[in-house]
Design a protein around this nucleic acid. Structure first.
Length: 878
RNA sequence: GAGGGUAUAGCUCAGUUGGUUUAGAGCGCUUGCUUGACAGGCAAGAGGUCUUCAGUUCAAAUCUGAAUAUCCUCACCA
């Protein structure tokens, strides 16, 4: 088969991905081998691939491919998340385009549209992952809202309810008036927003509901909520306001009478020291209200408009009402002054609407016990966080975990399995039938139509926290006593989880909770936190900024392997990633390098009768050792999840050691053939190298692996065993380093001086130079020096820096003398430093033997260098 | 406001329980190369008082404290 001059990723990628899936290479079933399991962090079913996914899934794929080649039974379970809020808002938007409003539909009708939308647009991301080369077991693809997994969620709810950990509470929630749903605290973005501080006069009541001429002044940013005021609050220690004790004041415009109360919450030096208490519309006010038994008057409806309880401005949007009421207050003489003011305001993450604090009945899951368990899992080391700097954060969160609000005012999701009896009592059961039975146990006359199911659905995280269990055995969550099925028994606990640190609490901690509760075992041994992908200037990738490239475009332009490399190159664990396209370019260049090196080797003709040259024989011996050493290093990096270091080690091994040194050494002269022995070794090395790098660059390695030698149908590099680290000859590596240094020195001199003598090179060697390396130096140095000539330089000999090989070159004597003098001075200074250290009694007394030896070696090295330089100087001057 | 992370070359990062480094790598930069695989390449080179100050130690990029900068999480003030 002919190799094209240029590597064409697109051709190769489709071909091999199809080959892999056709042969079901990604598929795993329980067997006698050791399992290695990863569950995908399920992306939103409606999501499309972004750079964060690329990073995450590349890392996952590297780990899974590595494990597969290491002989483990590797299983990577893919799937998607129903993402209730995101999906529902997309469906609502789509319906709006079609001229349908959500309000006009029944729940069933809406869900029908939603499922249609899901079938049509869902799971695109899973197809995109294939382009990346993700080796997921597609037969195991799961969706958090498929019937079995939904059942698991419902069972879990029933389980915790019956355990007494789920309760219904009235809480202040963050209401999104656009999405018409409560959003969690975590989905609220606080942004400093310019607004006004309105100073309002509240006149003291004469007792009959008429204003006196005395008044107090409060400062508020939300004048439209004054109709919901339940009290005016001052700090009891604030003497300025003691005259108000026991007084009542009138709300402007509507003249409703409210009391003046005292509470420590009020800060004396903020605003006017008087606070209007609006329990229905502010979290703190609600708490004050609880303490003082204040009435809760809710004057804002779900859409953010004033309702009839406001008595005035009914039906107006809250922001319109604000403008209007300010005018009214001004006209009524209640507006004392207006200040410019910047304060943090909560916005909905999804719709960017200003969050309205609102009282609402919600379902909660108690966190206390679960958090305690989850903290222990990590503190005991059964689950390791990588990097471990996240331990502190994790502990802090677990120790301060607030109860989890698990209900969402949406339709897309698992509907809460709670049924209300006509008298308001609640039964919680996995099905309507079971609920009816339970209800009839309370009241035998209850019929199905008397029962009303809760309208809300469960938080999406309430299904994804079961993910590592439910993808294998959906019967298990909610049934701790259930005997795990074969899959769950074999694959659980999973090994590693790769995810972003932003969901450590939403998802990671909660999976640990569910794992401990239902399996009595942590769901994974290691959690590897990636960084957040940012652009070159450090901004988060976002659609609005338009600074996120489309990964598919990148793959089309550079190839999937290149994109994977580009992502990994800059990704040390836990640090944010500054993405720059030049890194992908580097990845592409690496592909080209691999490709071209293979073209070179494949292009050689082999002479079975020929014998290896001395240089080639030395090179083969050396690279064998070098390879083993590198494999050892790479294994070490992997074991510590230092993936980019592992990649870098292989990158340099391939590029510098194999291509720049090894291939140059074994390369036959133009027109000549290579001996069979060296050729075989060269191919074997190449094969080992591409196996090493395969987890990172799956496509090009499969292509070349197939071409190295004849392969049978159904063979794949994916299951070729990883190169194992064998013993290597450290002395040989050290000797070769000297040879390389020598060659570099020779090249350096040539380049620096701009000379390239025609004369053959004389290599004069003294006793300390490793003689076996002479052919190596000779071959490479001659190549380096065989070209060109310098003009008008006079020749003499000089010393190459560190080793004692004398090379005859033409150089400018004076320049060389100056350079040598400079080097000599530096070495003398260095020697003095080392000697000072060695003469320090304390150093000799305390430092480990190894360190002292090191210093002695430095001393003798410096000495011998000084000697060489002096000798060379003498020769040049003389 | 509370807690946490980070600070090393122009950029992105290593530096593995203080001595194995005269502080390394990749990219970028400069210079020279139409060198029979590769200009997506080859070769050479420049570039860092390890943010600052103080402390512990025979010894600090590494440990401690403070300052400064920056990022993240949580809470958010009428």
């Amino acid at each position: 088969m002919e190799l094209s001059t240029k590597y064409n990723p697109a051709e190769v990628e489709d071909k091999w991905y199809a080959y892999w899936t056709d042969h079901k290479f990604f598929h795993s079933e329980p067997n006698e081998k050791e399992p290695y399991t990863i569950v995908i962090p399920p992306p939103n079913v409606t999501g499309i691939l972004h750079m964060g996914h690329v990073l995450n899934n590349t890392l996952n794929d590297v780990l899974i491919r590595k494990a597969r080649m290491d002989g483990k039974n590797a299983c990577w379970v893919p799937g998607t998340d129903h993402a209730s809020i995101a999906t529902e808002s997309k469906v609502v938007a789509k319906l709006k385009d079609m001229g349908i409003s959500k309000d006009s539909l029944t729940r069933e009708e809406f869900l029908k549209y939603a499922w249609e939308w899901k079938e049509e647009h869902g799971g695109i991301i899973l197809k995109q992952l294939r382009k990346l080369g993700a080796s997921c077991d597609w037969d195991r693809t799961r969706f958090t809202m498929e019937p079995e997994l939904s059942e698991a969620v419902i069972n879990t709810f029933v389980y915790f309810y019956k355990k007494g950990w789920i309760y219904k509470g009235v809480r202040m929630v963050n209401w999104d008036p656009e999405a018409l749903t409560a959003v969690s605290d975590d989905e609220v973005i606080h942004k400093d927003t310019k607004s006004h501080f309105y100073h309002l006069r509240y006149y003291i009541s004469d007792g009959q509901g008429n204003p006196t001429d005395k008044y107090l002044v409060i400062a508020t940013t939300r004048p439209e909520t004054i109709m919901a005021d339940a009290a005016i609050c001052v700090n009891p220690a604030d003497e300025r306001h003691h005259w108000l004790r026991g007084k009542k004041v009138l709300i402007p415009l509507i003249n409703r009478e409210i009391p003046v109360i005292e509470d420590d919450y009020v800060e004396m030096d903020f605003g006017t020291g008087c606070l209007k208490v609006t329990p229905a519309h502010d979290v703190h006010d609600y708490e004050i209200g609880l303490r003082h038994n204040l009435e809760v008057i809710d004057i804002i409806d779900d859409h953010g408009r004033l309702n009839e309880k406001a008595r005035i401005l009914v039906g107006e949007d809250r922001f319109v009402a604000r403008k209007k009421i300010v005018k009214m207050l001004e006209e009524a003489g209640n507006l004392e002054k207006v200040e410019e003011y910047t304060s943090p305001v909560g916005y909905s993450e999804r719709t960017n609407a200003v969050i309205e604090p609102k009282l609402s009945a919600q379902w909660f899951l108690k966190m206390e016990e679960l958090a305690k368990m989850a903290l222990d899992t990590v503190e005991s080391g059964r689950t390791r966080l990588i990097p471990d700097k996240y331990m502190n954060t994790y502990r802090h969160w677990m120790e301060n975990a607030r109860d989890w609000c698990i209900s969402r005012q949406l339709w897309w999701g698992q509907r809460i399995p709670a049924w209300y009896l006509p008298d308001g009592r609640i039964v919680v059961e996995p099905s309507a039938e079971a609920a009816l039975k339970a209800a009839q146990a309370i009241d035998p006359n209850i019929k199905m139509e008397d029962l009303k199911q809760d309208e809300d659905v469960l938080d999406t995280w309430f299904s994804s926290w079961l993910w590592p269990i439910s993808v294998f055995d959906p019967q298990k969550p909610g049934h701790p006593e259930h005997e795990p099925n074969a899959d769950l028994a074999y694959y659980y606990p999973t090994n590693d989880l790769v995810t972003g640190p932003d969901i450590i609490f939403f998802w990671v901690a909660r999976m640990i909770m569910a794992g401990e509760e239902f399996m009595g075992k942590e769901p994974f041994s290691n959690v590897y936190f990636t960084g957040i992908v940012r652009d070159k200037i450090g901004r988060k990738m976002s659609k609005t900024l338009g600074n996120s490239p489309d990964p598919l475009d990148l793959i089309a332009k550079y190839g999937a392997d290149a994109v994977r490399i580009g992502m990994l190159l800059c990704s040390s664990a836990g640090n944010d990633i500054f993405y720059d396209e030049s890194q992908v370019e580097q990845g592409r260049n690496f592909c080209a390098k691999i490709w071209n090196s293979f073209r070179l080797v494949k292009g050689w003709t082999v002479d079975p009768a020929a014998q290896p040259s001395e240089a080639a024989a030395a090179a083969v011996k050396w690279f064998g050792s070098k390879l083993n050493q590198a494999v050892e290093t790479v294994e070490d990096h992997y074991s510590k999840f230092r993936i980019s270091d592992a990649l870098m080690t292989i990158y340099r091994l391939f590029w510098d050691d194999y291509c720049s040194w090894y291939l140059e050494l074994v390369k036959p002269a133009f027109g000549e053939a290579i001996d069979a022995q060296t050729y075989d070794a060269t191919l074997s090395f190449f094969e080992a190298l591409i196996k090493l790098i395969h987890p990172v660059m799956p496509f090009i390695t499969e292509e070349l692996w197939q071409q190295i030698r004849e392969r049978k149908e159904g063979e794949t590099i994916m299951y070729a065993p990883s190169p194992k680290a064998e013993a290597y000859d450290a002395a040989l590596l050290a000797d070769f380093d000297i040879a390389m240094e020598t060659v570099v020195g020779i090249r350096g001199i040539r380049n620096q001086k701009g000379i390239a003598p025609k004369e053959a090179l004389d290599v004069l060697v003294d006793g300390s130079f490793p003689m076996a390396m002479a052919p190596v130096v000779e071959k490479l140095a001659i190549v380096s020096l065989s070209e060109g000539d310098a003009e008008g330089k006079t020749g003499a000999s000089l010393v190459v820096k560190t080793c004692k090989v004398f090379v005859c070159l033409k150089v400018n004597v004076e320049e060389e003398i100056a350079r040598l003098k400079k080097d000599l001075a530096y070495q003398q200074q260095f020697l003095a430093g080392v000697r000072k250290k060695l003469s320090n009694e304390n150093f000799v007394a305390h430092a480990p033997e190894k360190v002292i030896e090191m210093e002695r070696k430095k001393e003798s090295d410096a000495l011998s260098r000084i000697e060489s330089y002096e000798a060379a100087l003498k020769a040049l001057e003389g």
